[in-house]
Design a protein around this nucleic acid. Structure first.
Lengths: 221, 221
DNA sequence: CGAATGGTTCGGTTAGGATCGAACCATGAG
DNA sequence: CTCATGGTTCGATCCTAACCGAACCATTCG
């Protein structure tokens, strides 16, 4: 009788309006927090938490904990394919709501909690390692201190804290690591203070000016 | 808040075990009666009747009344694609309950609505792309037409239809794409007409003969 | 150390829907 | 016509799961 792959299990996960709203919101590959998703689904965070746990358990979503946030994202391409296949049914109407010009910008550079992420953040971090600003254990080398001084940054002046100075943080859009920790924050602060870039209100986008990007690239080279 | 396409509606239709069992049974494109489907779903005919009404109402199935029978079949290719997309999830993990000798055959070649799926289908599709039978936008190139002519297929002779000529369909067992659309159907029809393969009754398996497989491979090379 | 914020757990309520028995309608066979 | 069979409708039961309030845990900030 009832055999074969258990299609109903996954379908049931998508079958709830709140869950499907959250899934659609994640279709562009972004990673969103539980409270953001609760808002998008029109439910309280308790309910969202329960839904998200089910989706993760069902391997439809993956989580990544960062600080006190938990970032949820689709578990892979096959999930997006499934959602696309479902959208075919309601396709005749329903103009898609997303993918304004903001998305590419978000991939290029954005704030991740308090430090730089996206393409620019990843490039920074990889350059710091390749050029030995950082040692393998993520401590700052002498050359690192020199380079930081070039943009007016002296780690000795940072406010004390028990938060680690350097930490690697997984970048969702690039799937590589970028620099987090107090130093990540300090560098972003300098980038903003130098007017190399500015934050766009109501979003996580960091917008580099043309001169700012040139300055940043020159600094890395 | 909650906008966008109402994917939860269709997902809910598939989310019931009895309904999904019936849908899977229909994946080979056959049309079955309500009582047959009731048996396959492991439910009484009253319940099945209710389920089937919902599926028809939701445009997942179509009915055809003949005498005192009512034949149900999938509403279209997009339904089969959806079911395949769902099967992707239960394929890798979840030690399947049944691994008789039929499964390998099913993975090797099977019918997906009306076109070739499984290992053979995926190989065909990848070859078509690598060897430029198809352009990136899935239109048929001149070389493609030549190769199709080799097995006696002329796309100009296909019956007109508004169904797309070429479509990619995610393959459940392979997690890659295979060829659907009118051309996918036409190729499978030729493969069967050439006696390269035949359908096994009561299943979705497409069984290639040794010579048939050789012919198929030679055609691809 | 609080205070603030992001998230989870628990308990109780509620609504939807899957299920089947029984009765009913429609078609076809004899 | 009568009977058997395919299918639907109705009503009642029962179970699941979505939901939120409230309390709780964890992390960061001052």
């Amino acid at each position: 009788m009832r055999e074969g792959p258990d299609i109903a299990r996954v379908a049931a996960l998508v079958a709830d309006p709140a869950r499907s709203a959250m899934l659609i919101a994640l279709m562009d590959g972004r990673a969103l927090t539980a409270t953001e998703l609760a808002g998008l689904g029109g439910i309280t965070k308790q309910t969202a938490s329960s839904h998200l746990a089910k989706l993760v358990d069902g391997e439809v979503l993956t989580v990544e904990a960062q600080g006190r946030h938990r970032y949820f994202r689709l578990a892979g391409l096959h999930v997006a394919s499934l959602l696309e296949a479902l959208m075919v049914f309601s396709s005749d109407a329903a103009p898609p709501l997303r993918t304004g010009p903001r998305d590419p910008a978000l991939r290029k550079a954005r704030i991740c909690y308090d430090h730089l992420a996206g393409e620019m953040g990843v490039r920074l971090f990889e350059r710091m390692q390749a050029d030995h600003w950082l040692a393998d254990d993520l401590t700052v080398t002498e050359r690192g201190n020199d380079k930081l001084a070039e943009i007016g940054l002296n780690l000795g002046n940072l406010p004390p804290s028990n938060r680690p100075l350097c930490r690697a943080c997984l970048d969702w859009s690039q799937r590589r690591q970028h620099l987090a920790g107090r130093m990540g924050k300090a560098i972003l602060d300098r980038v903003l203070a130098l007017s190399w870039a500015r934050r766009l209100p109501e979003s996580r986008i960091i917008c580099f000016s043309p001169e700012g990007e040139r300055g940043f690239n020159r600094w890395l080279s």
